[in-house]
Computed example of a mutant assay.
Amino acid sequence: MKKTIYFLFVLFLAQQASAQDINKIITREYVDRLIKTLSSDEMEGRATFSPGIDKAASFIEQEFKTIGLQPLEGQTGFRQSFEKDGKPLFNVAGMIPGKSKAREIVIFSGHYDHLGIIKAEGQDSIANGADDDASGTTAMIALAKYYKALNNNERTLIFVAFTAEEIGGFGAKYFSQKLNPDDVVAMFNIEMIGKESKFGKNAAFITGYERSDFGKILQKNLEGSEFTFHPDPYPEQKLFYRSDNATLAALGVPAHTISTDQIDTDKLYHTVKDEYSSLDPENILATIKGIAQSAISIVKGIDTPTRIPKLKK
């Protein structure tokens, strides 16, 4: 009995220390700097094949280097380069090798491309893509910083900013060809977390919630916290198939997208008004911390989500 009480006390202290650590590691100032930079006019909307997306990639590379991530196996740098129709494309990817379960992979992702220069509204023609998806890319980078600082991941963690999501998901498709999907335990794809969800504060939804027990595991790890995850409230939008999780999900990976966007009423989606000034920074911060806490048992190799049935060819 005494041993049990002691164990629970130690576990409580560890949870408290982790909560304190995350508030020091993932700060409002840090998150703001990331998203403001990625959605700045200097990035020119981060269109695929543009100078702006190259600037964004360089910024993400520098952040990965500062955090201390390693390039993926077989890569000499963080750019995962390939071609589409004879033109160069590149994901930006880094990793934290796992300890006891290094062959098992957990992926955190967001797409860093957007629409670039589009039809002007007034004097503005830059589709900055602050919510779509500078917010998700910011979350991915912040989570890399957090887990690198914790240094307790038993599984290998891969952090990837996908390119060309807006024109067909080509970055995610290429990425999926470079690993064995059977080695991927889970994928946390993060898209549009810049505004409060229809469930209110401290809440997000998971696409394809019913397809695996991924969401149930995340919610279990959030017991005692204010944050909650919910099934996708917009099934008619088919969001599960509209982001970079879809490619790996089709191969059987518990690959889901986490979002807070009220897509059925979002009037700024794919417009020049999707700028930092339209976002709720506290929502972004709370969602990142919620993901960080909810993923911990998967990162540590304690929980393994059930597989998603592979799509038949």
Rank of each mutant, 00 (worst) to 15 (best):
K2I: 15
K3N: 09
T4G: 01
T4L: 13
L13T: 03
L13K: 03
Q16M: 14
A17G: 00
A19R: 00
A19N: 02
D21Y: 01
D21W: 04
I26D: 05
Y30F: 13
L34S: 08
T37R: 12
D41S: 08
M43Y: 02
M43L: 09
M43I: 10
A47D: 13
A47F: 10
G52M: 11
I53C: 14
I53D: 15
K55R: 13
T66C: 00
L72W: 00
F78Y: 13
F82C: 13
E83T: 07
D85C: 01
K87D: 06
P88N: 07
F90D: 12
V92S: 12
M95K: 15
P97M: 05
P97A: 04
G98V: 00
G98F: 00
K99F: 07
K101I: 02
K101L: 06
R103C: 01
E104F: 04
I105C: 07
I107N: 08
F108V: 08
F108H: 08
S109T: 07
H111F: 01
Y112W: 10
Y112R: 10
H114E: 09
G116R: 06
K119Y: 01
G122A: 09
S125V: 05
I126P: 12
N128F: 05
N128E: 02
A130K: 02
D132A: 15
D132K: 15
A134G: 10
T137Q: 06
T137D: 07
A139S: 09
A142E: 10
A142K: 06
A142G: 07
Y147W: 11
A149V: 06
N152M: 10
N152D: 15
R155V: 07
F162V: 08
T163C: 07
E166C: 06
I167C: 00
F170H: 01
F170S: 00
G171S: 11
S176E: 09
K178Y: 03
D182W: 06
D183W: 00
V184H: 13
A186G: 08
M187Q: 15
N189A: 10
N189S: 11
N189C: 11
G194Q: 08
G194D: 09
E196H: 10
K201N: 09
F205T: 03
I206F: 00
R211M: 03
D213Q: 06
E223C: 09
E223D: 14
S225H: 11
F227I: 08
H230L: 13
H230E: 14
P233C: 04
P233I: 04
P235F: 09
L239E: 02
D244K: 09
V253C: 12
V253R: 13
H256P: 11
T257R: 07
T257S: 12
T260Y: 03
T260R: 01
D261H: 01
H270E: 12
V272E: 08
K273I: 02
E275R: 12
S277T: 00
D280H: 08
P281S: 05
E282G: 04
E282H: 09
A286W: 00
A295Q: 12
I296R: 14
K300L: 01
G301R: 11
I302C: 03
I302S: 08
I308H: 02
I308P: 01
I308Y: 06
P309V: 05
P309I: 07
L311T: 15
K312T: 15
